[in-house]
Amino acid sequence: MSLDKATVKNIANLARLEVRDDELEHLVGELSNILQFVEQLAEVNTDGVAPMTSVAHMELPRRADEVTDGNYPDKVLANAPECHDGFFLVPKVVE
């Protein structure tokens, strides 16, 4: 499958990655090339095959729904680019 510029722009938006207009042409070629490479999977007969989500032959373990960690807001915020009064700061989202 060959992508077009509008599709690549849309994917970039979904991924929250800013892509400049002058990068689009190159990306269209590169991503189309990759998709053509992976599309050879279409020739494999997978009728009746269950998708493999994990190689670990195990049930996901369960545990009691209890708080077992936390109570160190300073550690949680220590790496924040901006924080204030125990909160992460972000640009204004509500007018």
Partner: peptide, 13 residues
Amino acid sequence: YYIKAQKVRRLIA
């Protein structure tokens, strides 16, 4: 793409 790849992954395993 994704589900197809997961099916082929099972065949490989």
